[in-house]
Design a protein around this nucleic acid. Sequence first.
DNA 1: GTCTATAGGGCGATAGAC
DNA 2: GTCTATCGCCCTATAGAC
Lengths: 184, 184
Amino acid sequence: MGRWEPDARGRMTRAALELFAERGFEQTTACDIAERAGVTERTFFRHFADKREVLFDGSESLVRTAREAILAAPDLPPFDAALVGVVAATDLLEGHREHAAHRARIIEANPGLRERELLKIAALADLTTEALRTRGVAEPAAALAAHSAVAVFQVAFARWVAEEQRADLATCVAETAAALRALV
Amino acid sequence: MGRWEPDARGRMTRAALELFAERGFEQTTACDIAERAGVTERTFFRHFADKREVLFDGSESLVRTAREAILAAPDLPPFDAALVGVVAATDLLEGHREHAAHRARIIEANPGLRERELLKIAALADLTTEALRTRGVAEPAAALAAHSAVAVFQVAFARWVAEEQRADLATCVAETAAALRALV
DNA sequence: GTCTATAGGGCGATAGAC
DNA sequence: GTCTATCGCCCTATAGAC
């Protein structure tokens, strides 16, 4: 057995989610999280640029999945291509509605966390724009299609976790996309 | 003459813009800004919740303008009503292209500032959604129309400050809105 | 205005993996 | 030997409390 327990990163993300739920984000110090995970505070900051980042550990793979799906898709109109990326990203969340809702509640309760989430969503929009451009879509169509698809994702996600509906996320996205088309 | 120089708030916002441009956001402390503005650090934090906030002093009136324009508008389809709000907000920026571009460059260079800007944009989307709902628009149409209009604003603003074009902001918004309609 | 806790970066030491 | 993860201590700026 090694000198340290394995999966320090996973232990830290789980500890953080627990502590934020128990006593709130602001009332939890980076030191508390590190302690519960069995590492030092300094190790925490080596894995995560700041305290908020520990809640967004999976976001990079989500964005990468969207990007790759767009690049691999058949030839489609810009908005449809952007939706392909969003749908691929949502696939990673499907089946984890409880966890997503739990996490969303923590983020909603703190403006600083909301801020960070918006940055991650903006990154999704930016990478989607870039992927569309790689597929030959010109500006401003690429940026507009990307922002619209991401707006669909946001609205659909909010409805999905709002508990009233039991539909899966893919269905929410499809319905919301149809609603947008009817609207503009 | 009073005990203190007037317009401490204005002096602080100007000092901050200067210092951020001269040496960057991170290399400027709240203390530096206060010093150049001729106030104490404590006074700075009395006016602004945190260091970033000093760059977003006008954003509240922008959002309020958008909201009031929507509530005062004649009866329109949801997306058109949302655009009325965006256009009203952009009126406040018209004629200050140089200043807007300068400020945008500072924000773009710092992820933390980008984060704050996204929060302000999200506030614009949220208030627009709420205004549309007040006008009788149901969900998810209200949220989708608001997000789409704000996306148009973001893309149009980016093109406006990108220097190549000399068109005014209202023209950029109109063209971008037309592009979105053609797209979805 | 003063005091203080927390965030978070710098640097060197240590101990395993290769 | 190099590379990488962890640790410990020092530091400053932020931002809230009194």
